[in-house]
């Protein structure tokens, strides 16, 4: 059922829009191509911002700084009863979607489907969006350089999301493990 909704959503939305347009006598082909012209412009506009964010984040990862940051946080993680294996995920989650999914796949295949860590990691990944990437691309596309509180908001929401994931998962999944 859920699969059906996600696969049917796009074709259905497209059909609905086109049908309404035809009924209202909108020249759909001309309007489509007129709108589509901007596709290239927008994609090219975001390249500089993508390069800045992706290069700096991958440097951070490759230098081993990310690893050391994980190690430094390990004690704190034990204190709040968070499985240590989710740590790279917590750090990477706001930085890069691809990396977060990579870490998650790694956790999932390493610990197997029944582990609590896998479920917790799944909820963490599923409930988040990569703050840095979104900000860089969206602001970059229109040339905004002063983000004001947008970044702080995104990071605070991410932290709240992680805390919520821990609480909710322990309520949902922990009793059933025993």
């Amino acid at each position: 059922m859920i699969n059906f909704i996600s696969t049917a959503a796009i074709p259905f939305i497209v059909l609905l829009i086109l049908t309404v347009a035809i009924i209202k006598k909108v020249p759909v082909y001309q309007e489509f191509t007129e709108g589509a012209k901007d596709g290239f412009k927008v994609a090219v506009n975001i390249i500089p911002y993508l390069v800045a964010i992706i290069v700096s984040v991958s440097m951070f990862r490759e230098s081993g700084a990310l690893e050391m940051l994980s190690n430094a946080c390990a004690g704190f993680f034990e204190m709040i009863k968070l499985p240590i294996d989710t740590l790279p995920l917590v750090i990477v989650r706001s930085l890069s979607g691809g990396a977060a999914l990579g870490v998650f796949s790694d956790i999932a295949s390493h610990f197997g489907p029944d582990a609590y860590v896998t479920k917790l990691a799944a909820v963490m990944v599923g409930s988040s969006e990569t703050t840095f990437y979104v900000l860089a691309v969206y602001f970059g596309s229109i040339g905004i350089t002063k983000y004001r509180y947008a970044l702080l908001t995104g990071i605070l929401a991410d932290i709240i999301g992680i805390v919520a994931a821990i609480l909710v998962c322990s309520m949902f999944f922990l009793p059933s493990i025993a």
Binding site: V20, A36, K37, A43, V51, I54, S56, S58
Partner: peptide, 29 residues
């Protein structure tokens, strides 16, 4: 990283054009 950035941007062009076209129709009607 630089290579990946350009790949991401370029992979966006087509799908971007498609949705911008559809949204334009949605606006017009």
């Amino acid at each position: 990283g630089a290579d990946l950035s350009v790949k991401i941007a370029f992979s966006l062009i087509g799908i971007m054009a498609f949705w911008l076209g559809i949204v334009r129709i949605a606006e017009k009607c």
